[in-house]
Design a protein around this nucleic acid. Structure first.
Lengths: 132, 132
DNA sequence: CTGTATCCGTATAGATACTG
DNA sequence: CAGTATCTATACGGATACAG
């Protein structure tokens, strides 16, 4: 079914997958994408293809291990392309796939939400802590 | 500025907060909300107020510890109300605040994304693993 | 430049037992 | 019913060293 509409796919998914269920594969997938580095990596790559070193700078404070691990998982899950240019030194670019692009928008919203509501959350915390 | 528009608030946030920065408070907030249980709790509560036991059943597989911890954090961050009815036995209902409601929509999208793209992700994994 | 490999402390999550 | 308290395992993340 190559021309299945998004609506129809949602209907299919509704019957097959449910992240509320403990053993549903989508539960694990939700767990994977619910990750700070995944959100930031996709948000960064939404601006276009980027080199490993660019991502490393952009995602301030990320360790090599976590960046590589995150990118590998995203690549394996089909969210990013990994383009290796065999120069010396080697150059590696990362780019969103169509699948990655479909998630990137939500990640941008998530990141923006955190930035936009930071003040409200801090106010709520202050109020909560004062009440205790 | 009680009537600040969403657009203006975004502009303010853009100047003040940036989750790409390691030390920005919004980075920690992004980390907090990038959580499986947070996503599922908000998704469940989007359908209306729910009791602790209802949430416990809905979020299949969640431990008491994680559910309570998640709900406490959400309450402290101003995303949910906790309504205690001092009956015997006690009854506790959880309900989204306006702030929680503003995030719940994104969480529903995130959960739906996982369910809708599960097949594509699995196909990508199979292809990736076959190539290695 | 873009990784891999290893060590290690901590935080997290689950299981279990107990309580108002 | 809705928690709290405690224990434990392990997975996660960071630091460091090294390599193609």
């Amino acid at each position: 079914m190559p021309t299945m509409t998004a609506e129809r796919r949602r209907a299919e998914a509704k019957r097959e997958y449910d992240a509320f269920m403990a053993d549903c594969p989508s539960r694990k997938l939700l767990d994977r994408i619910s990750d700070k580095w995944v959100a930031l990596a996709l948000a960064s790559l939404s601006e276009g293809p980027q080199r490993y070193s660019e991502l490393s700078r952009r995602l301030a404070g990320v360790s090599q291990k976590m960046l590589t691990q995150t990118l590998r998982t995203l690549e394996r899950d089909g969210l990013v392309f990994r383009v290796v240019t065999p120069s010396v030194p080697v150059r590696v670019d990362y780019e969103l796939t169509d699948l990655g692009h479909s998630l990137q928008e939500t990640m941008l919203v998530l990141k923006a939400w955190a930035e936009e509501h930071m003040d409200q959350v801090e106010a709520a915390r202050t109020a909560y802590d004062a009440a205790v």
